[in-house]
């Protein structure tokens, strides 16, 4: 485990060292090539601005107004009826936030970890959940938006179904390993 955290620290410096060095040995004019490639970064970032703002505004209003909290409260009896352990209810806000907003989900996860303790069941489940799915809804809007795709077809369904499986798998494995 120590090895993995060390690897995380070294990954980017390693890439920044190794790729230019290797390119130099292959006689690539390193600086000019880097600049050429970097040029695209600006254009792409500008192109996604409208999609970013559209999503952030809608999600922001939904969360800050308290609508999300009401939705979660409405869902709680349903989960209890399905036989969920009441302990699990704590992670529902995170499960709903996760596909919508990366920074929002991180905020919820951090709050859960502090509230219940990092080594509690909820703390470990929140950590696993945060690390295990992505902001599906957001990525979809921005990635498709950046190239002008209007018809998303079955993409959102696939993404959300995978998130659902990730949630169930997280609950199962955390209960098994730490429960």
């Amino acid at each position: 485990m120590k090895l993995i955290t060390e690897a995380a620290r070294w990954a980017i410096p390693f890439l920044l060292f190794f790729i230019p060095l290797y390119a130099h040995f292959r006689k690539v004019p390193v600086y000019e090539t880097f600049v050429e490639g970097a040029e695209d970064g600006f254009k792409t970032a500008v192109k996604i601005i409208p999609f970013l703002i559209g999503m952030l505004v809608s999600i922001g209003v939904f969360v800050d107004s308290g609508a999300l909290r009401i939705l979660i409260d409405l869902m709680k009896p349903f989960f209890l009826k399905m036989g969920w352990n009441p302990d699990l209810l704590g992670v529902i806000p995170l499960a709903i936030m996760r596909p919508l907003s990366g920074s929002g989900a991180l905020g919820v996860a951090t709050q859960l970890i502090h509230q219940y303790g990092p080594d509690s069941f909820i703390g470990r489940l929140a950590s696993t959940l945060q690390g295990s799915t992505d902001t599906t809804f957001f990525v979809l809007a921005v990635y498709f938006g950046s190239v002008g795709i209007k018809k998303h077809r079955y993409a959102l369904k696939v993404g959300l179904l995978a998130d659902g499986i990730g949630l169930i798998a997280s609950i199962w494995i955390v209960s098994r390993v730490f429960g």
Binding site: L15, R26, V28, T33, F34, A38, G41, T44, A45, I48
Partner: peptide, 21 residues
């Protein structure tokens, strides 16, 4: 978006190097 501009430029530059090499 502004944060992404810098990061995107950095990684697309590195990617071009990796491509050409």
């Amino acid at each position: 978006a502004i944060g992404l501009m810098g990061i995107m430029s950095l990684w697309l530059g590195i990617m071009r190097l990796a491509e050409d090499a």
